[in-house]
């Protein structure tokens, strides 16, 4: 086992594309997880306060611990106080909140001055960097949960079809075929047109429409393995169907699943941003990469930063997960590993 890990690691460190992919995935995962701390109008730490306004030492921490007080805390304009030198404070790298609108800053170009918008602002004066970072949270959440849901459904249906065979297989295969006939984007759009879109409905809809590929692969794997000697041996010891499926066959079929997971997350992130771009994704004030691109469509000539930055984010995440999937396929497949 240790030998195997070492071999995989060696292959991995030789593959520059895979290495960069992992770095990008981890970077975006970190940004997604830490967005509320990295992009907020509330300062991390107030060092000295001569403004006469009462404030906690760490307004951001205070807001996180007491979510109800956030609105009151956010009424104070810390950036103004700081630039008038009434307080001295340490701000997050992006000192803006994603929902903060300010029509004075209509389509500000990127600027690196203190309290300028580092990646520009959109047509409502919202900071693009803050919205990108909080959008990362939404994209990653949708990707992970939608794919997780698709996996649960796909593995369940595929495993049952492949394991039991016969009429079960016939019925389930027919069901898979029926779902495949529906064009995914049209089906998702129709569902979102008829119910109210929210972050949760988008995750559920992407998950409910995205399981067919997994189910087909799982069915093939189970068909291949259910007659194997190790399954027969386990059955002779009196193992139940559930135990055979979950403990004996599934772990042996994990490799193609892991590879598919990486590709599917890329697909789900892309799908979520497409839906937001079309205006039926996460509802309005919620930040999303696709939503910023949609906003850019209204001002194509003046605001290049609205096109370039969110697009780059989507591209980086999608390409990273795709390369990760490609590398996993090579690393988990002994035949290809021997060849390379």
């Amino acid at each position: 086992m240790r030998n195997f890990v070492r071999k995989v690691f060696k292959l991995y460190s030789n593959d520059k594309a895979a290495f960069s992919a992992i770095v990008i995935v981890l970077l975006f995962a970190f940004i997604a997880a830490a967005a509320p701390i990295l992009a907020s109008k509330l300062p991390w730490l107030v060092i000295s306060n001569n403004s006469g306004i009462e404030m906690p030492t760490s307004p951001l921490l205070h807001a996180i611990i007491h979510p109800r007080k956030r609105i009151i805390l956010e009424r104070t304009d810390y950036r103004k106080l700081a630039s008038e030198e009434k307080i001295s404070a340490i701000f997050p790298p992006v000192p803006f909140s994603p929902y903060e609108t300010n029509l004075d800053n209509f389509l500000d170009a990127p600027s690196f001055s203190r309290f300028g918008h580092p990646l520009g602002s959109d047509s409502l004066g919202r900071d693009v960097a803050a919205r990108l970072m909080h959008g990362a949270t939404n994209s990653m959440l949708v990707g992970l949960i939608a794919v997780g849901l698709a996996f649960i459904i796909g593995v369940l249906i595929g495993a049952m079809a492949g394991y039991f065979g016969g009429w079960t297989d016939l019925a389930l295969s027919r069901f898979i075929e029926i779902v495949i006939c529906f064009p995914t984007l049209i089906l998702i759009m129709a569902v979102l047109a008829l119910i109210k879109p929210s972050l949760v409905t988008i995750m559920v809809v992407i998950g409910l429409t995205g399981w067919t590929g997994i189910a087909r692969v799982m069915r093939g794997e189970f068909l291949k393995r259910r007659g194997g000697d190790f399954v027969l041996a386990a059955r002779l010891t009196g193992a139940s169907h559930v135990r055979l499926i979950l403990k004996h066959i599934l772990p042996n079929s994990l490799a193609p699943l892991i590879v598919m997971a990486a590709f599917d997350i890329a697909g789900a992130v892309l799908l979520e941003s497409s839906l937001s771009f079309l205006g039926i994704g996460v509802p309005a004030p919620e930040p999303s990469w696709g939503d910023i691109l949609k906003n850019s469509q209204e001002y194509p000539d003046i605001a290049w930063w609205l096109v370039v930055f969110p697009g780059t984010c989507i591209f980086l995440v999608v390409v990273a997960f795709n390369f990760l999937g490609d590398w996993l396929r090579k690393a988990l497949n002994p035949r290809e590993r021997a060849a390379s």
């Binding site: 850019s296 194509p300 000539d301 096109v307 697009g311 999608v318 390409v319 390369f323």
Partner: peptide, 24 residues
């Protein structure tokens, strides 16, 4: 080809429209 595969098509469409159509 993998890079191309990962480029979101609507983003490329916007960029192409911005730089190759309409006169900007």
């Amino acid at each position: 080809l993998y890079l191309l595969y990962s480029l979101p098509s609507f983003w490329i469409a916007l960029l192409l429209l911005k730089y190759f159509a309409g006169g900007d």
